[in-house]
């Protein structure tokens, strides 16, 4: 088994003239990988690029051992890729079951398996009781869980989650962490968040980016070690995070 699930080589990405990700070379190992950074750091752009929703401006991405050069590569990778965007779009008149089934069809999950994998994903996010509820009638937290359900459908080997815990109450966040641990048994999970405690709870490794450039990569323990007396934050991890943001940008 290869040691990395995701690799970017000199990846540059952006909209218009402004680059948002600058020359990023990164290896994401199997397991749960956290993506931290202030607003506008480029986390969402990086995840959208890894999800193959936007093509890199320059550089290369290798997902699940396949270099994504064209649409065919992208579609092949997407068979094994689940993505929860930050702004999760859904068809409001579909029921939860219909919507997840629709996503399974978009993912080309074989018809014979659809019923089983859809039910499994819905149960995994604890939406079994709402399976026949229309998406428009779900609460914010339930919608987020439905989004996670479509991202972990079937034989997904790479799960990209952009702010997955927004809108979840504390109990749901705990359940979410359990779910991520469970999913990480079979898939690499890349998790973008503002919440340092989520990263500490579930991530094996993490990347902090600021202004499109990496400022820290390592384990949560290594981030804690960066914590210093002067840094702001209530926990060691938060102090490590602020320290990482303010020290010289690290070459990775």
């Amino acid at each position: 088994m290869p040691t990395t699930a995701v690799r970017t080589i000199n990846l540059t990405q952006g909209y218009g003239e402004t680059p948002i990700i600058k020359n990023l070379t990164l290896d994401i190992p199997h397991g749960v990988f956290g993506l931290l950074g202030p607003n506008g750091a480029g986390k969402t752009t990086l995840l959208r690029t890894l999800a193959t929703a936007i093509a890199p401006r320059s550089g290369e991405i290798v997902l699940l051992d396949r270099t994504v050069k064209n649409d065919r590569d992208a579609r092949e990778v997407r068979r094994h890729l689940g993505y929860l965007p930050q702004e999760f779009g859904y068809h409001p008149n579909f029921t939860v079951h219909e919507f997840i089934s629709y996503c399974a069809w978009l993912r080309r999950i074989p018809s014979a398996l659809t019923r089983e994998v859809v039910t499994e994903a819905i149960m995994a996010v604890d939406l079994g009781a709402q399976a026949k509820t229309k998406m428009k009638n779900l609460s914010g937290g339930m919608l987020r869980r439905a989004g996670i359900a479509q991202a972990i459908l079937g034989g997904t080997r790479l799960v990209l989650l952009d702010e997955p815990t927004v809108g979840l109450d504390p109990e749901q966040r705990l359940a979410f962490r359990d779910l991520i641990r469970k999913v990480s048994g079979r898939a690499t999970v890349v998790l973008s968040t503002h919440l340092v405690e989520d990263v500490a709870a579930v991530c094996d490794n993490l990347l902090i980016i600021a202004d499109g450039e990496p400022v820290f990569t390592g384990s949560p323990r290594e981030l804690r070690d960066l914590s210093s007396e002067g840094a702001r934050g209530d926990t060691e991890l938060e102090r490590g995070y602020t320290a990482a943001l303010h020290r010289d940008k690290a070459g990775i």
Binding site: T52, G89, H91, L106, R108
Partner: peptide, 18 residues
């Protein structure tokens, strides 16, 4: 227009199907 109303274009953009 449902794709615009639901802001669901990313569902399709990351779809395995053309």
């Amino acid at each position: 227009q449902r794709i615009h109303r639901a802001s669901a274009s990313q569902l399709v953009q990351t779809s395995t199907r053309p």
